[in-house]
Design a protein around this nucleic acid. Sequence first.
DNA 1: TGAATTCCTACTAATTTTGTAGTAAAATAC
DNA 2: GTATTTTACTACAAAATTAGTAGGAATTCA
Lengths: 135, 135
Amino acid sequence: MNITTKGRYALKIMIDLAQQGEDQVVSLKAIAQRQDISMKYLEAIAAILHKADYITSIRGKNGGYRLSRKPKDYVLSELLRLTEGSLAPVSCLESGCPNAEGCITQPLWAGLERHMDEYLSKITLQDVLDGTVPG
Amino acid sequence: MNITTKGRYALKIMIDLAQQGEDQVVSLKAIAQRQDISMKYLEAIAAILHKADYITSIRGKNGGYRLSRKPKDYVLSELLRLTEGSLAPVSCLESGCPNAEGCITQPLWAGLERHMDEYLSKITLQDVLDGTVPG
DNA sequence: TGAATTCCTACTAATTTTGTAGTAAAATAC
DNA sequence: GTATTTTACTACAAAATTAGTAGGAATTCA
Protein backbone atom coordinates (compact mmCIF):
# COMPACT_ATOMS: atom_id res chain seq x y z
CA MET A 1 0.00 0.00 0.00
CA ASN A 2 2.34 2.67 -1.20
CA ILE A 3 2.44 5.90 -3.10
CA THR A 4 5.58 5.52 -5.19
CA THR A 5 8.36 8.05 -5.54
CA LYS A 6 6.83 8.98 -8.86
CA GLY A 7 3.77 10.38 -7.15
CA ARG A 8 5.70 11.88 -4.28
CA TYR A 9 8.32 13.50 -6.46
CA ALA A 10 5.65 14.83 -8.79
CA LEU A 11 4.05 16.53 -5.82
CA LYS A 12 7.44 17.89 -4.78
CA ILE A 13 7.92 19.35 -8.22
CA MET A 14 4.54 21.05 -8.05
CA ILE A 15 5.21 22.38 -4.58
CA ASP A 16 8.64 23.64 -5.53
CA LEU A 17 7.31 25.43 -8.59
CA ALA A 18 4.61 27.07 -6.53
CA GLN A 19 7.00 28.11 -3.82
CA GLN A 20 9.42 29.75 -6.21
CA GLY A 21 6.68 32.07 -7.39
CA GLU A 22 3.86 31.31 -9.72
CA ASP A 23 5.22 32.92 -12.84
CA GLN A 24 8.84 32.12 -12.14
CA VAL A 25 10.51 29.74 -14.59
CA VAL A 26 12.32 27.07 -12.62
CA SER A 27 14.76 24.53 -14.04
CA LEU A 28 14.73 20.88 -13.08
CA LYS A 29 18.35 21.28 -12.10
CA ALA A 30 17.37 23.76 -9.41
CA ILE A 31 14.54 21.53 -8.19
CA ALA A 32 16.80 18.49 -8.17
CA GLN A 33 19.30 20.33 -6.03
CA ARG A 34 16.79 21.77 -3.61
CA GLN A 35 14.88 18.50 -3.21
CA ASP A 36 17.96 16.30 -3.45
CA ILE A 37 16.59 14.08 -6.20
CA SER A 38 18.35 12.89 -9.33
CA MET A 39 17.65 15.36 -12.11
CA LYS A 40 17.41 12.63 -14.72
CA TYR A 41 14.67 10.93 -12.76
CA LEU A 42 12.85 14.21 -12.31
CA GLU A 43 12.95 14.64 -16.06
CA ALA A 44 10.87 11.54 -16.54
CA ILE A 45 8.36 12.65 -13.96
CA ALA A 46 8.19 16.20 -15.29
CA ALA A 47 7.41 14.69 -18.69
CA ILE A 48 4.24 13.14 -17.27
CA LEU A 49 3.18 16.40 -15.69
CA HIS A 50 3.93 18.29 -18.87
CA LYS A 51 2.04 15.88 -21.07
CA ALA A 52 -1.05 16.36 -18.93
CA ASP A 53 -0.50 20.10 -19.08
CA TYR A 54 -0.07 20.38 -15.35
CA ILE A 55 3.12 22.31 -15.96
CA THR A 56 4.26 24.50 -18.83
CA SER A 57 7.74 24.16 -20.26
CA ILE A 58 10.09 26.80 -21.56
CA ARG A 59 12.88 25.25 -23.56
CA GLY A 60 16.39 26.47 -24.12
CA LYS A 61 18.73 28.47 -21.97
CA ASN A 62 17.12 29.99 -18.89
CA GLY A 63 14.25 27.66 -19.58
CA GLY A 64 12.43 25.45 -17.16
CA TYR A 65 8.90 24.90 -15.98
CA ARG A 66 6.10 26.73 -14.28
CA LEU A 67 2.64 25.74 -13.10
CA SER A 68 -0.04 25.89 -15.77
CA ARG A 69 -2.77 26.86 -13.27
CA LYS A 70 -3.19 28.39 -9.86
CA PRO A 71 -2.27 26.08 -6.96
CA LYS A 72 -5.87 26.02 -5.78
CA ASP A 73 -6.87 24.52 -9.13
CA TYR A 74 -4.88 21.32 -8.70
CA VAL A 75 -6.74 18.59 -6.86
CA LEU A 76 -4.62 15.96 -5.16
CA SER A 77 -6.72 13.02 -6.28
CA GLU A 78 -6.15 13.95 -9.90
CA LEU A 79 -2.46 14.58 -9.47
CA LEU A 80 -1.95 11.22 -7.81
CA ARG A 81 -4.13 9.42 -10.28
CA LEU A 82 -2.05 10.89 -13.08
CA THR A 83 1.30 9.89 -11.69
CA GLU A 84 0.36 6.65 -9.96
CA GLY A 85 -1.86 5.48 -12.77
CA SER A 86 -4.80 4.83 -10.50
CA LEU A 87 -5.92 5.04 -6.91
CA ALA A 88 -7.55 1.63 -7.00
CA PRO A 89 -6.22 -0.56 -4.21
CA VAL A 90 -6.70 -3.71 -6.28
CA SER A 91 -6.32 -4.03 -10.01
CA CYS A 92 -9.63 -5.83 -10.50
CA LEU A 93 -11.35 -2.49 -9.91
CA GLU A 94 -9.62 -0.94 -12.90
CA SER A 95 -9.58 -3.45 -15.67
CA GLY A 96 -13.14 -4.68 -15.41
CA CYS A 97 -12.75 -7.97 -13.60
CA PRO A 98 -15.03 -10.55 -15.28
CA ASN A 99 -15.92 -11.93 -11.87
CA ALA A 100 -16.78 -8.56 -10.34
CA GLU A 101 -20.44 -9.49 -9.98
CA GLY A 102 -19.92 -12.59 -7.90
CA CYS A 103 -16.95 -11.24 -5.99
CA ILE A 104 -17.70 -10.87 -2.32
CA THR A 105 -14.71 -8.65 -1.63
CA GLN A 106 -15.35 -6.22 -4.43
CA PRO A 107 -17.53 -3.83 -2.38
CA LEU A 108 -14.76 -3.58 0.18
CA TRP A 109 -12.12 -2.46 -2.32
CA ALA A 110 -14.54 -0.23 -4.14
CA GLY A 111 -15.50 1.40 -0.86
CA LEU A 112 -11.88 1.92 0.07
CA GLU A 113 -11.10 3.53 -3.22
CA ARG A 114 -14.12 5.79 -2.93
CA HIS A 115 -13.06 6.91 0.51
CA MET A 116 -9.54 7.67 -0.59
CA ASP A 117 -10.84 9.57 -3.55
CA GLU A 118 -13.27 11.56 -1.48
CA TYR A 119 -10.54 12.62 0.88
CA LEU A 120 -8.01 13.50 -1.79
CA SER A 121 -10.60 15.32 -3.88
CA LYS A 122 -11.07 17.85 -1.12
CA ILE A 123 -7.41 18.80 -1.04
CA THR A 124 -5.72 21.19 -3.44
CA LEU A 125 -2.08 22.02 -3.96
CA GLN A 126 -2.80 25.32 -2.25
CA ASP A 127 -3.92 23.48 0.88
CA VAL A 128 -0.65 21.59 0.97
CA LEU A 129 1.30 24.82 0.55
CA ASP A 130 -0.69 26.53 3.30
CA GLY A 131 -0.47 23.60 5.66
CA THR A 132 -4.26 23.58 5.81
CA VAL A 133 -4.81 20.01 4.75
CA PRO A 134 -8.24 19.09 6.12
CA GLY A 135 -8.36 16.51 8.88
CA MET B 1 -1.28 2.08 -4.58
CA ASN B 2 -2.04 -1.57 -4.27
CA ILE B 3 -3.11 -4.17 -1.81
CA THR B 4 -0.92 -7.13 -2.72
CA THR B 5 -2.05 -10.69 -3.26
CA LYS B 6 -0.80 -11.42 0.21
CA GLY B 7 -3.48 -9.26 1.74
CA ARG B 8 -6.13 -10.33 -0.72
CA TYR B 9 -5.40 -14.02 -0.40
CA ALA B 10 -5.31 -13.71 3.38
CA LEU B 11 -8.80 -12.27 3.24
CA LYS B 12 -9.87 -15.09 0.93
CA ILE B 13 -8.58 -17.64 3.41
CA MET B 14 -10.53 -16.01 6.20
CA ILE B 15 -13.67 -15.82 4.10
CA ASP B 16 -13.34 -19.41 2.99
CA LEU B 17 -12.87 -20.66 6.53
CA ALA B 18 -15.91 -18.73 7.66
CA GLN B 19 -18.02 -19.97 4.79
CA GLN B 20 -17.19 -23.61 5.41
CA GLY B 21 -18.61 -23.30 8.89
CA GLU B 22 -17.02 -21.78 11.92
CA ASP B 23 -15.89 -24.92 13.69
CA GLN B 24 -15.11 -26.85 10.57
CA VAL B 25 -11.47 -27.77 10.04
CA VAL B 26 -10.46 -26.86 6.50
CA SER B 27 -7.24 -27.85 4.77
CA LEU B 28 -5.24 -25.45 2.66
CA LYS B 29 -5.52 -27.91 -0.16
CA ALA B 30 -9.26 -27.46 -0.20
CA ILE B 31 -8.98 -23.70 -0.05
CA ALA B 32 -6.36 -23.67 -2.77
CA GLN B 33 -8.66 -25.67 -5.02
CA ARG B 34 -11.76 -23.62 -4.32
CA GLN B 35 -9.99 -20.28 -4.67
CA ASP B 36 -7.65 -21.45 -7.43
CA ILE B 37 -4.48 -20.31 -5.70
CA SER B 38 -1.21 -22.21 -5.37
CA MET B 39 -1.33 -24.16 -2.14
CA LYS B 40 2.34 -23.53 -1.41
CA TYR B 41 1.80 -19.82 -1.57
CA LEU B 42 -1.24 -20.09 0.66
CA GLU B 43 0.94 -21.91 3.18
CA ALA B 44 3.16 -18.88 3.54
CA ILE B 45 0.18 -16.60 4.00
CA ALA B 46 -1.56 -18.95 6.42
CA ALA B 47 1.64 -18.94 8.46
CA ILE B 48 1.28 -15.19 8.97
CA LEU B 49 -2.34 -15.56 10.03
CA HIS B 50 -1.48 -18.42 12.33
CA LYS B 51 1.39 -16.61 13.95
CA ALA B 52 -0.93 -13.73 14.81
CA ASP B 53 -3.46 -16.23 16.10
CA TYR B 54 -6.06 -15.20 13.57
CA ILE B 55 -6.48 -18.84 12.67
CA THR B 56 -5.97 -22.02 14.64
CA SER B 57 -4.15 -24.96 13.14
CA ILE B 58 -4.78 -28.66 13.52
CA ARG B 59 -1.82 -30.67 12.31
CA GLY B 60 -1.73 -34.14 10.89
CA LYS B 61 -4.19 -36.08 8.83
CA ASN B 62 -7.62 -34.51 8.56
CA GLY B 63 -6.00 -31.39 9.91
CA GLY B 64 -6.28 -27.88 8.63
CA TYR B 65 -7.30 -24.52 9.96
CA ARG B 66 -10.26 -22.77 11.47
CA LEU B 67 -10.95 -19.22 12.57
CA SER B 68 -9.80 -18.39 16.08
CA ARG B 69 -12.62 -15.92 16.67
CA LYS B 70 -16.07 -15.06 15.42
CA PRO B 71 -16.15 -13.31 12.04
CA LYS B 72 -17.51 -10.14 13.63
CA ASP B 73 -14.40 -9.95 15.77
CA TYR B 74 -11.98 -9.49 12.87
CA VAL B 75 -11.54 -5.90 11.81
CA LEU B 76 -10.35 -5.34 8.27
CA SER B 77 -7.86 -2.64 9.14
CA GLU B 78 -6.05 -5.02 11.43
CA LEU B 79 -6.14 -7.90 9.02
CA LEU B 80 -4.67 -5.78 6.24
CA ARG B 81 -2.12 -4.20 8.51
CA LEU B 82 -0.99 -7.66 9.53
CA THR B 83 -0.56 -9.00 6.03
CA GLU B 84 0.49 -5.85 4.23
CA GLY B 85 2.82 -4.74 6.98
CA SER B 86 1.27 -1.30 7.20
CA LEU B 87 -1.45 0.86 5.77
CA ALA B 88 0.85 3.86 5.49
CA PRO B 89 0.83 5.22 1.95
CA VAL B 90 4.43 6.42 2.28
CA SER B 91 7.18 4.77 4.27
CA CYS B 92 8.21 8.00 6.00
CA LEU B 93 5.09 7.67 8.15
CA GLU B 94 6.23 4.35 9.52
CA SER B 95 9.92 4.53 10.20
CA GLY B 96 10.03 7.90 11.89
CA CYS B 97 11.32 10.16 9.15
CA PRO B 98 13.88 12.56 10.66
CA ASN B 99 12.49 15.36 8.53
CA ALA B 100 8.86 14.76 9.50
CA GLU B 101 8.66 18.10 11.32
CA GLY B 102 9.64 20.27 8.39
CA CYS B 103 7.91 18.15 5.79
CA ILE B 104 5.08 20.01 4.12
CA THR B 105 3.55 16.89 2.60
CA GLN B 106 3.50 14.87 5.82
CA PRO B 107 0.00 16.01 6.90
CA LEU B 108 -1.38 14.90 3.55
CA TRP B 109 -0.08 11.34 3.84
CA ALA B 110 -0.94 11.14 7.51
CA GLY B 111 -4.46 12.30 6.72
CA LEU B 112 -4.81 9.76 3.96
CA GLU B 113 -3.68 6.95 6.20
CA ARG B 114 -6.07 8.05 8.93
CA HIS B 115 -8.97 8.09 6.51
CA MET B 116 -8.17 4.65 5.19
CA ASP B 117 -7.85 3.35 8.71
CA GLU B 118 -11.11 4.91 9.81
CA TYR B 119 -12.95 3.29 6.94
CA LEU B 120 -11.40 -0.14 7.35
CA SER B 121 -11.81 -0.08 11.11
CA LYS B 122 -15.56 0.00 10.71
CA ILE B 123 -15.65 -3.18 8.66
CA THR B 124 -15.51 -6.68 10.05
CA LEU B 125 -15.13 -10.01 8.34
CA GLN B 126 -18.80 -10.59 9.10
CA ASP B 127 -19.71 -7.50 7.07
CA VAL B 128 -17.81 -8.84 4.09
CA LEU B 129 -19.54 -12.21 4.41
CA ASP B 130 -22.94 -10.56 4.68
CA GLY B 131 -22.32 -8.16 1.83
CA THR B 132 -23.09 -5.31 4.22
CA VAL B 133 -19.88 -3.37 3.78
CA PRO B 134 -20.74 0.21 4.78
CA GLY B 135 -20.68 2.80 2.05
C1' DT C 1 28.99 29.69 -31.51
C1' DG C 2 28.59 28.01 -26.76
C1' DA C 3 26.03 27.04 -22.85
C1' DA C 4 21.93 25.74 -20.61
C1' DT C 5 17.96 23.63 -20.82
C1' DT C 6 13.92 20.57 -22.21
C1' DC C 7 12.82 16.35 -24.92
C1' DC C 8 13.26 11.62 -26.26
C1' DT C 9 14.64 6.75 -26.31
C1' DA C 10 16.74 3.05 -24.53
C1' DC C 11 18.93 0.67 -21.05
C1' DT C 12 20.12 -0.99 -16.20
C1' DA C 13 19.92 -1.76 -11.29
C1' DA C 14 17.40 -2.58 -7.17
C1' DT C 15 13.53 -4.02 -4.81
C1' DT C 16 9.32 -6.24 -4.06
C1' DT C 17 6.03 -9.49 -5.20
C1' DT C 18 4.80 -13.91 -6.19
C1' DG C 19 5.63 -17.83 -6.12
C1' DT C 20 8.37 -23.05 -5.90
C1' DA C 21 11.03 -26.96 -3.84
C1' DG C 22 12.19 -29.93 -0.50
C1' DT C 23 11.93 -31.75 3.86
C1' DA C 24 10.74 -32.24 8.79
C1' DA C 25 7.20 -32.88 12.27
C1' DA C 26 2.66 -34.15 13.80
C1' DA C 27 -1.60 -36.65 13.86
C1' DT C 28 -4.67 -40.05 12.15
C1' DA C 29 -6.32 -44.36 10.10
C1' DC C 30 -5.49 -48.79 9.18
C1' DG D 1 3.80 -49.25 13.69
C1' DT D 2 3.52 -47.92 9.04
C1' DA D 3 1.56 -45.21 5.42
C1' DT D 4 -0.86 -41.09 4.55
C1' DT D 5 -2.27 -36.55 5.08
C1' DT D 6 -1.56 -32.42 6.74
C1' DT D 7 0.90 -28.27 8.85
C1' DA D 8 5.68 -26.04 9.71
C1' DC D 9 9.94 -24.43 8.22
C1' DT D 10 13.79 -22.86 5.32
C1' DA D 11 15.79 -21.64 1.32
C1' DC D 12 15.63 -20.52 -3.28
C1' DA D 13 13.87 -18.55 -7.91
C1' DA D 14 11.08 -16.26 -11.30
C1' DA D 15 8.48 -12.28 -12.59
C1' DA D 16 7.08 -7.75 -12.21
C1' DT D 17 7.54 -3.19 -10.76
C1' DT D 18 10.02 0.69 -9.24
C1' DA D 19 13.75 3.61 -9.45
C1' DG D 20 17.30 5.46 -11.67
C1' DT D 21 21.10 6.18 -15.67
C1' DA D 22 23.09 7.25 -20.11
C1' DG D 23 23.46 9.59 -24.19
C1' DG D 24 22.25 12.58 -27.25
C1' DA D 25 18.89 15.62 -30.17
C1' DA D 26 16.36 19.90 -30.29
C1' DT D 27 15.66 24.52 -28.65
C1' DT D 28 16.65 29.01 -26.94
C1' DC D 29 19.36 32.68 -25.20
C1' DA D 30 23.49 35.55 -24.87
